[in-house]
């Protein structure tokens, strides 16, 4: 049984059809990467899965099934059950999603207390524990910091710690490493892989970095102008790309062993 099944989905913003006929099926513990250029609709797809389409976006055709139940017409209460507990999302810059005038601890405690009926002190302790599990030493200090006091890599770890608090079955990551340095990117990617090993979390990772996609994913979806150009298992797609567009994307990735222009 697939955990998530996206069936022939069309998504429009107003009258503009942005994503056409998107299909995606994800099993337990599987990682799927969506790659494509900016504006190809990759973020729109994962936002639709979480019911977070911005600016009046709507699913106009098809269905999205999570554990065999459609998520398209859920009520607010039903979404609250799902979001953050069973499905969570990690954004490109986790610092930007947090209120700059509140400390990490305040946001984290609020988040935990939305989902669980526990005291502030217990929620704080739980937050610290999660931060330390995500290799952020000195969790107490971090809880007391404001987002701007942390580096990009630390902020991203805070985002992951929040997203993983309830060990969701499905983790959606929107360009989780694009704003980071290469060394930090490698650390964060490694952390994602450990999550999968440890908790068997399924993930959809949106990225424009084909190298990261290739390393993380079991299957890769290539999108262009709102349509799926090609999808398939990693090995097949990398070695025997069927479409010209996929080959072009693969060729454009700079590589340490590859050709030099000069």
């Amino acid at each position: 049984m697939a955990l998530l099944d996206v069936q022939h989905v069309d998504i429009s913003y107003g009258n503009r059809l942005t994503v056409k006929d998107c299909n995606l099926s994800l099993g337990k513990g599987e990682i799927c990467a969506i790659v494509g250029e900016s504006g190809s609709g990759k973020t729109t797809v994962i936002r639709a899965v979480l019911g977070l389409l911005a600016g009046g976006g709507k699913v106009t055709a098809g269905d999205i099934l999570y554990q065999d139940k459609s998520v398209l017409n859920l009520s607010k209460e039903q979404w609250n059950q799902l979001r953050g507990k069973e499905i969570s999302m990690i954004f490109q810059d986790s610092g930007a999603m947090m209120n700059p005038t509140r400390t990490i601890g305040k946001v984290f405690v609020e988040y935990i207390r939305t989902h669980e009926n526990i005291s502030k002190n217990d929620a704080w302790a739980k937050g610290v524990e999660m931060l330390e599990r995500m290799r952020l030493p000195n969790g107490d200090n971090i809880m007391k910091s404001y987002p701007f006091q942390l580096s990009g890599g630390m902020r991203q770890r805070v985002g992951i710690a929040m997203g993983m608090t309830y060990q969701p079955d499905l983790l959606l990551a929107d360009e989780p490493t694009s704003a980071l340095d290469v060394t930090t990117q490698a650390q964060i990617v490694r952390q994602f892989m450990e999550l999968r090993d440890e908790y068997d979390t399924s993930m959809i990772v949106v990225t424009h970095n084909l190298g990261v996609a290739a390393y993380m994913a079991d299957k890769i979806i290539v999108m262009k102008h709102g349509e799926i150009v090609e999808c398939g298992d990693r090995e097949r797609l990398l070695k025997h790309a069927k479409t010209e567009y996929t080959r072009q994307l693969l060729d454009a990735v700079p590589s340490l062993g590859g050709m030099r222009y000069v």
Partner: peptide, 10 residues
């Protein structure tokens, strides 16, 4: 730095 590069041929 080199080890942190994700390469499609790795």
């Amino acid at each position: 730095l080199m080890k942190s590069v994700f390469d499609i041929n790795m």
